[in-house]
């Protein structure tokens, strides 16, 4: 599955150093040999063929490429793949289980929190990071947590509602968690 990168990086012939990267991707151990300059977003998309992580702006502004890095949201288009070595990465493909959607995914659908769907994976992961830390967010908390993610279609109002919908659902499912969080 990582052959693409072994194939296109002719390291021995051209003195390009090739590094081994091992990550825990959506809970599964994955490894690849990559050029040091390879971006994490490209390792995820082309290397591991998880195309739910999108690249929008290349400058860390739009957040379409947001993934969770050891549980924190990062923009994978401006992070090198080698920096992820030994870390945990969660992408949109890691949100749902085989049988059920994550409440954030349900919330986005139920509240019409997406239109073209391109920014959606990044939005949902930024939202997950928020709800993991703060199960009782206010509307302002949600707006602030998503302020690193741009959307051009929906106008945010329904995205914010979707996240609040998910927060409520998560609290209902686990009333104890509402007391928790780290904020």
């Amino acid at each position: 599955m990582t052959s693409l990168f072994e194939e296109v990086a002719p390291s021995e012939d051209d003195n390009i150093p090739v590094r081994r990267v091992e990550v825990r991707l959506n809970g599964e151990r994955r490894a690849a040999k990559v050029e040091p300059r390879l971006l994490l977003a490209h390792l995820i998309r082309q290397g591991f063929q998880l195309t739910g992580t999108h690249t929008g702006c290349d400058t860390t502004n739009c957040g379409a490429c947001t993934v969770l890095f050891d549980g924190e949201p990062v923009k994978s288009c401006t992070m090198l793949a080698v920096q992820a070595h030994g870390h945990e990465v969660t992408t949109v493909e890691g949100l749902a289980t085989a049988s059920e959607l994550h409440p954030i995914q349900e919330g986005f659908k139920d509240e019409h929190g997406l239109q073209c769907g391109f920014c959606t994976p990044g939005m949902m992961l930024a939202a997950k990071a928020l709800l993991d830390h703060n199960p009782n967010p206010t509307e302002d908390d949600v707006r602030w947590a998503l302020s690193g993610n741009l959307c051009r279609c929906t106008g945010y109002q329904n995205i914010v509602k979707a996240v609040l919908w998910a927060a409520e659902k998560l609290r209902d499912a686990d009333p104890g968690a509402a007391e928790g969080g780290d904020e």
């Binding site: 998309r45 739910g52 959607l101 995914q105 986005f108 659908k109 769907g117």
Partner: peptide
Amino acid sequence: RRRVEDNRFIRGKGNYVDDVV
């Protein structure tokens, strides 16, 4: 009606041009 296309988008299973290999 809730959107049909959302079923793939919320799972990261949309098929945009850059996803085609």
